[in-house]
């Protein structure tokens, strides 16, 4: 993965480009990730994908948890990773454990060992070691580390814990990682400015290729978001890409100045 910033606005917004190994051309940022189900964009079969604008549509986000019911990591690995499994050789893939429909963080069941998700095959606790096993077999271009995402209404104590765990799991993910994909360090902290900043500062210290800003779309108000994002992006190094998910409607995306991949 290659990333460079090309220009800044008067404020914090910036444009740049992202080059992923298999995409035919560099993708201009800010860029949209197409959401997928089991790796394919909803209802658009691979022969129809070229009818979408290129190269902008070549960035796909997927959840490794969609494959909990199979094929097994071993089978996916034998096939040669997600790109081969899906027959999408000129596309870039970004792995994020959660999505907004079929793999939802379940913070009450998350514990010190791993993050819990409500999935189509029931509630599942995913430990860093299992997450990395999935990542290693799927071989995405970019992957976000495992995060403990909590809704905005949890106690300060629980929110602090989520930051501690997310940072700890990042260390574990990096230590276990054996793939060539770019690691994006997960940043959480709910709607607490200090915790957001604390998490960002800790993640910046780690050896990562970019940042994944999580914990949005969990009950915080839209008015709170700009200051929370500011607190995070202020800390992040300028030359690295930033990815965010859970924002929802296009109008809301405009709030996210200073973030590359939505």
């Amino acid at each position: 993965m290659k990333f460079a910033v090309k220009a800044w606005s008067n404020g914090k917004a910036r444009t740049g480009f992202l080059q992923l190994g298999n995409c035919p051309a560099a993708i201009d940022t800010p860029a949209l990730l197409l959401s997928t189900r089991k790796g394919l964009p909803h209802f658009i079969s691979p022969d129809l994908l070229p009818s979408l604008p290129s190269p902008d549509s070549h960035l796909l986000q997927f959840s490794p948890l969609h494959f909990l019911e199979g094929p097994s990591s071993k089978t996916i690995s034998n096939i040669g990773g997600l790109q081969h499994l899906l027959g999408l050789h000129e596309y870039g893939f970004a792995a994020v454990a959660r999505d907004s429909v079929q793999s939802l963080p379940e913070c009450d069941a998350t514990n010190k060992f791993g993050a819990s998700f409500e999935t189509t095959c029931g509630r599942r606790l995913i430990r860093p070691v299992e997450y990395i096993e999935m990542i290693s077999s799927m071989k995405p271009d970019i992957w976000a580390s495992l995060a403990d995402e909590v809704p905005s209404w949890v106690s300060d104590k629980r929110n602090k814990t989520s930051v501690d765990r997310t940072v700890k799991w990042l260390d574990e993910c990096i230590a276990l990682n054996s793939t060539g994909g770019a690691v994006f360090g997960a940043i959480v902290g709910g709607n607490d400015l200090e915790e957001r900043q604390r998490c960002a500062v800790e993640v910046v210290k780690r050896n990562v290729s970019g940042y994944w800003i999580g914990g949005f779309g969990f009950g915080e108000s839209m008015d709170e978001r700009p200051s929370l994002l500011d607190a995070v992006t202020d800390v992040l190094p300028e030359e690295m890409p930033r990815m965010i998910c859970g924002l929802g409607l296009p109008g809301i995306v405009f709030q996210s100045f200073g973030v590359e991949v939505v």
């Binding site: 189900r37 909803h42 209802f43 199979g70 094929p71 089978t75 027959g87």
Partner: peptide, 16 residues
């Protein structure tokens, strides 16, 4: 493009 394994994980669950 696809293996039986991938189609197996989609059939009767996903529209795809």
């Amino acid at each position: 493009n696809y293996s039986r394994a991938y189609i197996h994980c989609l059939v009767t669950k996903d529209a795809m």
